[in-house]
């Protein structure tokens, strides 16, 4: 990101664009990647409630996967899943 001059930024440290942290991808922190087994998933959405990073993707209110742009790979979703339909796999496997 190009750094702006003092004339270009709002005064007082104000940030005008809500939620622009979405432009900062935290997915590259990840060393383990969650993988969903859709067959097993019962859509209890526990993963959605406990994800610290809002990285559970819902489609029509149903669990449909992960947003790897932000998922830091903590593994809480896999650990808390009551039917164990999420497994954590080493990130190297996907490179």
């Amino acid at each position: 990101m190009k750094l702006m001059t003092w004339q270009e930024i709002p005064i007082g440290g104000l940030i005008l664009e809500a939620g622009n942290a979405k432009k900062f991808l935290t997915g590259d922190w990840r060393s383990q990647r969650p993988i969903l087994d859709e067959e097993k998933c019962i859509n209890c959405l526990t993963c959605f409630m406990v994800c610290p990073d809002g990285s559970i993707v819902l489609k029509d209110g149903k669990m449909s996967g992960f947003n790897y742009d932000y998922c830091k790979g903590c593994g809480i979703c896999a650990y808390e899943c009551p039917v164990k339909c999420i497994t954590m796999k080493p990130e190297e496997d996907f490179r």
């Binding site: 750094l3 930024i9 007082g12 440290g13 104000l14 940030i15 005008l16 809500a18 939620g19």
Partner: peptide, 12 residues
């Protein structure tokens, strides 16, 4: 929605 009082490091 504006954010006031952010953490402002070496960049800004």
């Amino acid at each position: 929605p504006y954010t006031f009082g952010p953490l402002d490091l070496q960049d800004y």
